[in-house]
Design a protein around this nucleic acid. Structure first.
Lengths: 198, 198
DNA sequence: AGCGTTATGGACGAACCAGTCAAGAATTAA
DNA sequence: TTAATTCTTGACTGGTTCGTCCATAACGCT
């Protein structure tokens, strides 16, 4: 009944994510995104409303995909829970070190730039962080059931600590820490987790 | 021999720091700073060159003051080294929780926004991080000499871990974590540091 | 006091950018 | 084929912002 869209919405969101991620919110121009996607500005505004709304979509999308990725990495049976946790911590360190552009994580970058003045971004970031902590807590509890982590430790508190270490690894990576430093942090963090009294 | 300045340079830098800290680099206008300091734009440009140079001055200043503050907090004899470390970690958690505006740390915020595209900022951030790690390492080594931390642990690696936790606390605070969560992280981080075999 | 030098402050210029709009294009229903 | 509807394109607008310029002010030296 009407002219169909020529572009794929998700693809535009992905391209916009790249731009916002590289340049930050304020420094990215709508025209950059229009050029990068091949769309005219009218289509962009017609489909997404405006710069702020587009960023909200991108940010929401990104947070969801990060949480989903971690959920996949940490899902499994109790026997492998510690291996999954360990692999995840090392993976974050490796990914951060591999990010030579030091873009860090859009979740952190977006929150740093906008959370103070944009309640929507702040809420979404908070929700994502809470989801990540819950995932870590679930895996740590599984480690405890399997005897890999001391049963008398509070899994919630350990999860919060691990989450802080992971976010810290990203922050240090953005500040230019070496890959060796980052993997050392990952190794040390895993090493200090309380083991069951053998 | 010539007309003297009517303003105090350091005071202008402090005011500019406030502005950049609240709004970020891109979102802060030179005119904001001019109004906030009472200076005309001509004086501002005459004294500091331009927006980027002004930010570099502010950022350099801020990094220096952060490192100095930590240096003061961690300086002392071996007997109190653990108390100082503990107080420092709790202080960061408390300060982050008290920062209800979620501005976080200008070091992190500036690095997040600009490090990727501004080598000067990236270098300064790296230097500050390294200085912080060295300070922590010195204090942890003192703890070891005093028997508060296991002597066989690598003080450099523990320092890197603590630094990651501290940066992580700030990142989580910016994302909206509660004061309880942050102090829990501080407590847990101190609790998992390896103690000497009694 | 007169002069050279530097600071001041606000008006101005030029570029930039978010968002709008109107004319035309593509599609389906009838 | 025609009408109705939605999409596309890119020029345009209005506001904003960095940085400059210049007439004037304040100071020290001679």
């Amino acid at each position: 009944m009407a002219r169909p869209r020529k572009f794929d919405e998700q693809q535009v969101l992905d391209t916009a994510r790249e731009r916002f991620w590289s340049g930050g919110y304020a420094a990215t121009r709508m025209e950059d995104i229009a050029e990068a996607t091949g769309l005219g500005k009218g289509s962009l505004y017609g489909a997404f409303g405006g710069k702020q709304e587009l960023f909200h979509r991108v940010f929401d999308d990104y947070c969801g995909s990060v949480v989903d990725a971690v959920r996949r990495q940490l899902r499994g049976n109790d026997a492998d829970a510690y291996a999954r946790l360990s692999a995840h911590v090392y993976a974050v360190a490796a990914a951060t070190a591999a990010d030579t552009a030091h873009r860090g994580c859009l979740l952190a970058k977006g929150a740093a730039e906008l959370a103070e003045h944009d309640e929507t971004v702040a809420k979404r970031a908070r929700a994502a962080i809470e989801a990540l902590q819950a995932l870590l807590e679930g895996d740590i509890a599984a480690c405890q059931r399997n005897g890999d982590i001391a049963a008398d430790a509070d899994p919630g508190k350990l999860a919060a600590l691990v989450l802080a270490v992971l976010r810290g690894i990203e922050a240090l990576g953005k500040a230019g820490a070496s890959e060796e430093t980052l993997t050392d942090i990952a190794w040390t963090a895993l090493a200090v987790l309380p083991r069951p009294a053998h």
